[in-house]
Design a protein around this nucleic acid. Structure first.
Lengths: 237, 237
DNA sequence: ACCTGAACACCGTTCAAGT
DNA sequence: ACCTGAACACCGTTCAAGT
């Protein structure tokens, strides 16, 4: 059911002519506008169509259902975040672990705060759609980029960089989410960035120290398993 | 609008007789059952009433709207988590920072995984309700408990324990959320617990080391502000 | 005090008819 | 190829009438 649902979220048909391409663009823009001006509960297919200057029928020609509209808006946002993270990671390659960590944290926070209103509105949307394939896929991209960058650090050798990156990014997203939920201002974002840098650096230090030798029973139990069983990417449901 | 909305989410009237008390109980149970068996999208006021063995009218006598139903179910879950965390923190008082950290992580994960199906279903519900007062209030309780415990550690003196606790708990909830989203199994939960312990210990080490001296511009800028401007509790919207 | 269920307004989705 | 908008099924919420 899950994969089928996710697939169904994609646009119903590709626009073949310039006219319909503009229509789709207008609809997606309308979704974001209605989301920001009226809020998610008031986001109605009729209202979106009205704002986009088309009829409901047209809307349903390109999107199979209301969720697909939100999905499209979420897609835009996540694409932006992923691209920003990938760029930051590529640029930080080969520098010290400390620098790389800072670059990742900064890029993540910057990407989320650049379109703060949209990001906040979409946090709810993302949850309503469930932990969609889209969110997972974006997570995978970001983790891959971060792992590549961190593995390139000259002054750090992690036993399991994949897991370390998954842990760090989950922690980062947790803090970012909290600041959003608390309606944080610029000062809160600065503080979050500073704390996240300390957090990640401390974690990497500790991992490099404690990681290699099996510390307790659970860690050892997992170490024997295949990569698929890691916290990281969702290789399987 | 926010506070008013949140207030309106509470039950409409207190049950005065034993009969109605049973009715409310039946309705809340029905919400959880429908949520688990039919899923959130199929959760209908009629369906809940039917499952509870009452009419829609009765349902609306105690809950002002559908969201209030979900709110009540979420309330149950969060209450359980908060109580568990408070107990764990109280019990760990006075022990080493390392032990306390472990206790907090373990209690958090245990509370969430004890009712994994319910917790997962409610993660979405919580988002649909927005970052409700309820979620924030529970966060405040947990942070307060954790701060009290950590401040009691003999081997640790943090400059800003409130912020440190807020950071740690946000990171923890981020990792927990990720494991849920990835549909993690028992091995993933064990791995998450281990990583979280390393993460938090490393963070506290680093905080105690780097914290006291102003490291960069942003940290210093915040340090001068009032406690209300911290990442932590949402003292104001 | 508590409960019922038909009635109302509104929303998501479809489809026959148009250009 | 693309668009329209009346029509349908269903859902949240109310309220006059019951016990």
């Amino acid at each position: 059911m899950d994969v089928a649902t996710q697939t169904a979220l994609k646009p119903r048909k590709k626009p073949r002519q310039a006219r319909s391409e503009a229509t789709v663009e207008a609809i997606v823009q309308a979704v974001i506008q209605v989301l920001l001006s009226d809020g998610a509960p008031r986001l109605t297919t009729t209202r979106v169509a009205e704002r986009a200057g088309v009829s409901v029928g047209t809307l349903y020609q390109y999107f199979p259902h209301k969720q697909a509209l939100l999905y499209a808006a979420l897609d835009r946002h996540l694409e932006g975040v992923a691209v920003a993270l990938e760029a930051a990671c590529a640029q930080a390659r080969g520098r010290s672990a400390s620098t790389i960590v800072e670059a990742i944290v900064d890029a993540y926070v910057a990407a989320k705060t650049a379109d703060a209103a949209g990001a906040r509105a979409l946090y709810r949307v993302a949850a309503e759609l469930g932990a969609s394939e889209l969110v997972k896929a974006t997570g995978r991209r970001i983790r891959a980029a971060a792992e590549a960058a961190l593995s390139s650090a000259a002054d750090l050798r992690l036993e399991n960089p994949r897991r370390a990156v998954a842990t760090m990014l989950a922690a980062i997203s947790g803090l970012v989410r909290t600041v959003f939920e608390e309606d944080g201002g610029a000062a809160d974002w600065r503080a979050a960035r500073a704390e996240l840098t300390i957090l990640c650096r401390g974690y990497l230090d500790a991992s490099a120290r404690d990681g290699p030798r099996a510390e307790a029973e659970p860690a050892a139990a997992i170490r024997g398993k295949s990569p698929a069983r890691q916290i990281g990417p969702g290789d399987s449901p």
